[in-house]
Nucleic acid binder design. Structure first.
Lengths: 218, 218
DNA sequence: CCATCATTCTATCATTTTATTGAATGATGG
DNA sequence: CCATCATTCAATAAAATGATAGAATGATGG
C-alpha cells in the first residue's frame, strides 16, 4: 500500500467520523462550547456510555479533545474549521440531494403562509444591527449563552419564553437565533412570538457559524 | 424520529460517502474533469465492477452525476464545492492528526536535503506568474491536461518527461503541478528534473484547487 | 437482428460499525 | 481509605459496508 493510498485512507477515517447522525449532533453541541459527557449525551439523546464511545471516535479522528476537570471530562472541538467543514457539507448536500431539500422544507413547513418568516441572512442581520433596527434574541439554554453569544443578544431560553417577554424590546424587529441552521429552537420561538403579535424572524445560521466567520462574540 | 434527526442522518450519509479511500481517489480523479468508469477504475486501482459500485454510492450521496455518451457512462462532480470540501477535510486532518503529518512527511521524505524543494504556495505562484519569472509545468496525462489546465502551462506527462525536455524553458524557474496536494506526479517530476540540473519546485496544490478558487483556467 | 462492448445489478461472504449491557477506572469528599 | 460519581472499557449481537464473481442491461456497428 502506497503512502498516498494511506493518506487517503486516513482522510477517509476523518470523513467517516462525520458519517453518523449522532456524532454530527454531538459536534453541533460542541460548536456551542465545551461540555461534559452527560450534557452531550442528553443533548444528543444518547445514553452516556454510547455518547462516550462516539466521542472516542471523534477523538481518534482528531475532531475533539478531552480535558479532565474534577470528576468530569470536558470535550471541545479541536478546530474552529470543523464548523466550516460541516457547514460546507450541509451546503453541498442541500444543493445536490433532493431528499435534503424535502427534509429542510418539512422542518420549516409549519410556518404560517405570510412569507414574512423567511430567515434573515448573515449580511442582512449585520445591516440591521448596524442601523440599530434589530434586536437579537438568543433562545439557547443559559449555559450555552454564557459560553458565548452574539454581541448585544438577549438570552431567553425557549422554555422560559412566555415568562420573560418583558425583556423583549417593542420598538424593533426581533431576530432570534440558536445553535445553527437545523436547530429548531429559534424556529419554535419565532412561531410562538408571532402568535403573540411580535415582529420577529429567524437568523438562518446560528452562533457557531457567526463565530467561525470571525465575527465578534461575547 | 424527528425531522431534525433525519436531516443530520442525511448529512451523515454524504459524509459517509467521503469515508472511503477509494472513493476519495475517484473524487480526486473526477476533480480533473469527467471520465468514464474504466478510466476511473484504473486510476483508482479498482476493478470496473467495484468502481461502479463506489460510483453508485457517490451518486446516491449527490456528489457525482452520470451521463451516457455512446457506450460509455461519463461521470462528473456535481458541484465545484466538493473540491473545497475535501480540501478543508484535508486541512483539518493535517492540523489535528499526528498520523496525518507523519504520512505527509513520508510522502515527501525522499527530497534531497537542500530545502529548496519546499512547495510553492498559491500566492507565491501568482506573484511569480505575474512577474514572468516562473514557467508552469503540468505533468498530468494529456487527457486531463486537455480537459483543463492552468493558464500558460506546458504539458509534459510524467511518462514522457525525459523525451520532451526541449519544451522546457531554461531562463525561468519551473513550477510543476498535477492533480492535487497528495498527487505524486509533480513530486516525482521535480526529483527527476532537479537531478538533471533544472531549477524547479512543486506547486503545493493542483489543478482542481486552482479552479475551485475561481482562478482562470484554460 | 446479432455480436460486442461498457456498465450495472445480484448474490455471497468477510469485515466493520453500532447499540447495549455490565464491569472497571479515576477523581472527589468525607 | 471508603463510598460515590462521571466516565471509559470490554463483550456481545444486530446491522451496514466492501470485495468478488457472474448474470443482466443497454447502446453500437455491422
Amino acid at each position: 500500500m502506497t503512502s498516498q493510498h494511506q493518506l487517503l485512507d486516513t482522510l477517509a477515517q476523518v470523513a467517516r467520523a462525520l458519517g453518523n447522525g449522532h456524532r454530527l449532533a454531538l459536534l453541533e453541541r460542541l460548536a456551542q462550547g465545551g461540555a461534559a459527557v452527560e450534557t452531550l449525551a442528553s443533548t444528543a439523546g444518547l445514553t452516556v456510555g454510547n455518547a462516550s464511545q462516539h466521542l472516542q471516535q471523534l477523538r481518534r479522528a482528531g475532531l475533539v479533545t478531552a480535558n479532565r476537570s474534577g470528576k468530569q471530562m470536558i470535550y471541545h472541538l479541536t478546530d474552529e474549521r470543523i464548523v466550516t467543514l460541516t457547514g460546507l457539507l450541509r451546503q453541498v448536500a442541500e444543493t445536490n440531494l433532493a431528499e435534503m431539500e424535502r427534509l429542510v422544507s418539512r422542518l420549516f413547513a409549519d410556518d404560517d403562509a405570510e412569507g414574512a418568516l423567511e430567515a434573515v441572512s448573515r449580511d442582512e442581520l449585520l445591516v440591521g444591527l448596524e442601523s440599530g433596527k434589530v434586536a437579537l434574541l438568543d433562545v439557547r439554554p443559559e449555559e450555552e449563552f454564557e459560553a458565548g453569544h452574539l454581541p448585544e443578544a438577549i438570552n431567553i431560553p425557549l422554555a422560559q419564553l412566555e415568562d420573560m417577554l418583558d425583556k423583549l424590546p417593542q420598538d424593533r424587529e426581533i431576530v432570534a437565533y440558536c445553535r445553527g441552521p437545523y436547530c429548531a429552537l429559534s424556529h419554535e420561538a419565532v412561531q410562538r412570538l408571532r402568535q403573540l403579535g411580535y415582529r420577529v424572524r429567524r437568523f438562518e445560521e446560528g452562533y457557531p457559524e457567526w463565530k467561525a466567520a470571525g465575527l465578534p462574540v461575547t
